[in-house]
Every structure is written in structure tokens, then in C-alpha cells.
């Protein structure tokens, strides 16, 4: 069987998802054996343009990004959003809720006029996305399993149920039930991370995106019972999920 050609591409992000792929260890060799990587800035200076599968991380945040991602879409048969920035707009979209001139000035100072930055958007606001591998950064095991599914021509399994499932499977004491309760976004956030944050006592911040049918009113009610204000609740949303409902 001919090895499919694969490219990794980055837009506005920390490239932590590409680094996660590079830190696969032994499994990275398996990846090299299964696919032919023709474009991967974090790993190689070679820039091939003949790829069938494009793994794309980062959000769209300049008008040049829009042109570039459309070119990638035109070349690739399959486009996969890699990580929270590509999937949801990610932390980059926090800027969308601030005054844009302030944001540009703060970032670029007196060179702000050089950058045509626009509101941060997930990649599916611009192109058709075939598959999503969520999380910030992506989970190694899920990446490997999802990639194998894509190579088989199958839809990868990405859970649509909340993080509470993963947390209970780990037999964690619910963060809301600890002696000093911690407000958590787990009940409305997509699982699959193995409840990595709640398992070490940190709140879920929603980096895998909301589940398809989140009960947000019930969640907000629970947070209010725990003494959180509307502003606190908005901060939760804005961390990774500020663009929900705005997308498409």
C-alpha cells in the first residue's frame, strides 16, 4: 500500500499540538512508517505541497490566514482540525471580547499598522473540516487512534459525552464535592481527556469544547449556587468557548 502524504500546518497558536506529535516517542516512528510527512515546520524545513491529509492547528486571525488555509483545503483531500485553536478559536478568541484597537496596540505597539489582524476564528469558519481532534494540547493516544481511523477511511471516535464520565471512571471525588469546592466546566465539556485536570484538582476549563447538547442553564444554576457571579461564569466561557453559537 502506498503511504498517504501528510502535511502539518499551523496558524495562530503555540504549536504545542505539533510538539505533542513530535513527543510521541516510539509511536512517532510508527507514524513515519505509516505516512509520508511532506510538510511539518516543527520537524523539517522541507515544504512539499502534494499532501492528501492536512493536520491544521491554530486559529484564523489575519486575512492572509484565510487565503492560505483555502489553498491548503484546495490541495488536501482530508482536513483535520488539530487542537483547541483550530477547533474552537481557542484562547486566541479571548481577544474577540475586547476592543480590537486596544488589543492590536498592546500586542504590536507602534507597528500595529503592519498587521491586518482580524477577529480570531476556528478554521471551520473558513473551510470545510472533515475531522476534529480536540483538546489543548491534543492527547497523544487520541491522536494516534484518530489518525489510524482516518487512514482506514473511518470517522474517528471522539466522545460527545461530558468530562464527568471520565472523572467518575477515575473514581475522582467530584470537584464540586470537595471540602473546598471548585467550580468546574466538566458537566458541559466534551470528554476524552481522561479528566486530566480534575484528576489533579484543577477545574475543567472546557478546552475540548462543549458537548453537542450542553445543559448550560443547569450548569450556570449550579455555579450560582456555589456563589459565582455572571462575570465569573463568562470567564469560564471565554477561556476556550467564547465563540460557541457564533460559529456557522
Amino acid at each position: 500500500m502506498k503511504k498517504p502524504k501528510v502535511g502539518f500546518f499551523e496558524f495562530t497558536c503555540c504549536e504545542g499540538c505539533q510538539l505533542t506529535v513530535l513527543s510521541l516517542g516510539d509511536k512517532l516512528l510508527d507514524l513515519f512508517e505509516s505516512v509520508d510527512i511532506v510538510n511539518f515546520r516543527e520537524a523539517s524545513s522541507y515544504k512539499g505541497q502534494d499532501y492528501e491529509i492536512a493536520f491544521i492547528e491554530g486559529s484564523i486571525s489575519t486575512s492572509k490566514d484565510i487565503e492560505r488555509i483555502k489553498e491548503i483545503r484546495a490541495r488536501a483531500k482530508i482536513c483535520v482540525a488539530l487542537g483547541a485553536c483550530a477547533h474552537l478559536g481557542g484562547v486566541n478568541a479571548i481577544r474577540n471580547f475586547q476592543r480590537q484597537s486596544d488589543v492590536r496596540w498592546r500586542t504590536y505597539g507602534d507597528k500595529a499598522w503592519l498587521f491586518d489582524s482580524i477577529l480570531a476564528q476556528p478554521i471551520d469558519a473558513v473551510i470545510k473540516v472533515d475531522h476534529v481532534i480536540p483538546e489543548c494540547p491534543i492527547d497523544k493516544k487520541e491522536f494516534l487512534r484518530a489518525t489510524a481511523s482516518i487512514l482506514l477511511g473511518k470517522k474517528p471516535f471522539i466522545p460527545d459525552y461530558p468530562v464527568c464520565v471520565d472523572c467518575k471512571m477515575k473514581a475522582n471525588v467530584c470537584l464540586f464535592h470537595k471540602p473546598n469546592p471548585i467550580a468546574c466546566m466538566g458537566p458541559v465539556t466534551r470528554a476524552g481527556c481522561g479528566a486530566v485536570c480534575p484528576s489533579v484538582g484543577n477545574a475543567c476549563e472546557g478546552c475540548r469544547g462543549l458537548i453537542p447538547d450542553p445543559n448550560l442553564s443547569a450548569w450556570e444554576e449550579v455555579l450560582k449556587e456555589h456563589g459565582l457571579s455572571i462575570e465569573d461564569i463568562l470567564k469560564f466561557y471565554h477561556m476556550y468557548n467564547g465563540l460557541m453559537g457564533v460559529r456557522r
Binding site: 459525552y161 461530558p162 464527568c164 464520565v165 467518575k168 467530584c174 466538566g186 458537566p187 458537548i211 443547569a218
Partner: peptide, 13 residues
């Protein structure tokens, strides 16, 4: 049901 998260915690435990 209107206040259910469909989080499945009840099933898991």
C-alpha cells in the same frame, strides 16, 4: 430532566 446534564454520573457510580 430539564436540569439534567446527561453527564451519566448516575450510571457510572
Amino acid at each position: 430532566g430539564s436540569r439534567c446534564f446527561n453527564c451519566g454520573s448516575c450510571n457510572m457510580v
